[in-house]
């Protein structure tokens, strides 16, 4: 298991530096994302839309099956089935990813939010301003601090959804496994009904993060020419002179 060692933050690039008109094509190649990272990414990418759609349906069944008798159809039943199955899939994927955080390469840990360190806040703000300059800044091989921050939020939200979701699932089987393991969380959040509402609201925040994620990846990949989009398939990112290969703990 890799030690959680933190290195000194590399000096930040001065803000507002103008780049020349022609952005040089990145050349150096780095193998960044190992297989479990890419795999869990795509499992998440599949599970989240399914979970969001079925979840919205379960909360507000927005279409009804064609008229007929109840024994002929199982619309809500199937929606719930899919929701639970993909919920387990997502949780499993998250578990693999968290495991890989410890045993994978340094990029698997990059961007970890050191929220107790002032230098981390500086790095996050710096990266935000970078993206507002609409110019090629330096590439982080690995996650930059802002990305790491949002992914930490993503994992926290998934954890919350997992706990509340399984606690709610356990309500259908009182005294069963999930009821015994997680049932105690429900009163803490104001009872079953409120847990439903919190679970629902948190799902929206996951969608928000996914929106920002997709946009900024396309933007970054287009402007920085670092092969970011391809990298989640091939595992490789590109860099030029001056980019930051933070193959260390904090990057």
């Amino acid at each position: 298991m890799a030690m959680l060692i933190e290195t000194k933050t590399p000096p930040l690039k001065p803000l507002g530096k103008k780049e020349t008109e022609v952005i040089p094509q990145a050349t150096k190649r780095h193998y960044v994302w190992q297989v479990p990272i890419r795999l869990t990414h795509w499992v998440n990418a599949l599970a989240i839309p399914v979970l969001f759609f079925t979840g919205l349906f379960i909360a507000t069944p927005f279409f009804s099956p064609t008229p007929g008798e109840a024994f002929e159809r199982f619309t809500m039943g199937h929606m719930r089935e899919f929701h639970f199955i993909f919920g387990y899939v997502l949780l499993l994927s998250i578990a693999v990813r968290v495991y890989w955080f410890f045993v994978g390469n340094n990029y698997a840990r990059s961007g970890f939010p050191f929220f107790w360190k002032p230098s981390w806040y500086k790095a996050v703000i710096h990266q935000m301003i970078e993206y507002m300059h609409l110019e090629r800044g330096y590439v982080n091989i690995g996650h930059n601090s802002l990305a790491g921050c949002s992914y930490a939020g993503f994992f926290a939200l998934c954890g919350f959804e997992g706990v509340t979701g399984l606690a709610l699932l356990g309500e259908g089987n009182p005294g069963g496994f999930w009821d015994r393991v997680l049932g105690w969380t429900t009163p803490l959040l104001g009872g079953s009904f409120r847990v439903h509402m919190w679970h629902h609201l948190a799902a929206w925040f996951i969608i928000l993060i996914a929106m920002f994620h997709i946009y900024i990846v396309l933007y970054d990949s287009h402007l920085y020419k670092d092969g970011l989009v391809d990298s989640i398939i091939s595992g490789e990112k590109h860099s030029i002179e001056g980019d930051k290969d933070a193959n260390t703990w904090i990057s």
């Binding site: 507000t60 409120r194 629902h200 799902a203």
Partner: peptide, 27 residues
């Protein structure tokens, strides 16, 4: 109504109305 108000401090909204507002703002 099934989706009901959640005790978000300061506002009384359903999870969906909060979610939609935030999505529109982010978009």
């Amino acid at each position: 109504q099934r989706l009901s108000n959640i005790p978000v401090p300061g506002i009384e909204s359903t999870p969906d109305s909060i979610g939609k507002t935030l999505t529109v703002l982010s978009a």
